[in-house]
């Protein structure tokens, strides 16, 4: 694990990332009239990240556990990004975007799926091969049959139990 000096640098880095996140989220919250410039969009966050990382590099560290520190840095980096993404994904704007995307996909998929199914059904029918829906239908019937059997089994068990109870009662009765 990193020494105290290394830890301080990571704390500094973390603070930089969090400040960057806040700025980034502030930007997300402000209405944008013109087209979004990706560079301008990411700059507040990236500038803070770069500044923090530059400071870590220039201040240096005497610890030979460079790999451990590097791993810790990456963990912090991923955690910071995770936090940023989680905050962004927890907005109604994001939910609306994925909802719209999904709806678009469903609108496109629905007729395509239907057409493909009809086509396959017709082709298989022509070849005398049972189609997917026919196989599914048979499987569904088997499931229903199993349920009916369970019902019969239950009733049979109930009848047997009653018969056993009756037999026990008869055995106890004086002749």
């Amino acid at each position: 694990m990193a020494d105290t000096g290394g830890q301080q640098l990571f704390d500094l880095w973390k603070k930089q990332v969090e400040d960057g996140t806040q700025q980034w989220l502030k930007m997300m919250g402000t209405p944008q009239a013109q087209t979004l410039d990706p560079q301008a969009f990411w700059r507040p966050f990236m500038d803070h990240c770069m500044a923090g990382w530059a400071k870590v590099m220039t201040q240096g560290t005497a610890s030979p556990d460079l790999m451990g520190q590097w791993k810790q840095f990456l963990d912090q980096w991923i955690a910071a990004w995770s936090k940023v993404l989680e905050q962004a994904m927890g907005t109604e704007a994001f939910a609306k975007v994925i909802g719209t995307q999904l709806e678009g996909f469903l609108n496109a998929a629905s007729p395509a799926k239907k057409a493909a199914e009809q086509h396959i059904e017709a082709t298989l029918g022509g070849l005398g091969i049972p189609s997917r829906s026919q196989v599914t239908g048979i499987a569904r019937q088997i499931v229903q049959l199993e349920e009916k059997l369970e019902g019969v089994e239950d009733r049979l068990e109930a009848v047997l139990k009653r018969l056993n109870d009756l037999a026990a009662a008869l055995r106890q009765e004086p002749r």
Binding site: G90, E92, A95, K96, I98, G99, L102, E103, L106, K113
Partner: peptide, 18 residues
């Protein structure tokens, strides 16, 4: 909970399609 909110996610359309 947010992503499946009825304002953003139409469960009927989803199940009926897929």
């Amino acid at each position: 909970g947010l992503w499946l909110d009825p304002r953003f996610f139409d469960v009927d359309k989803y199940v009926d399609t897929l």
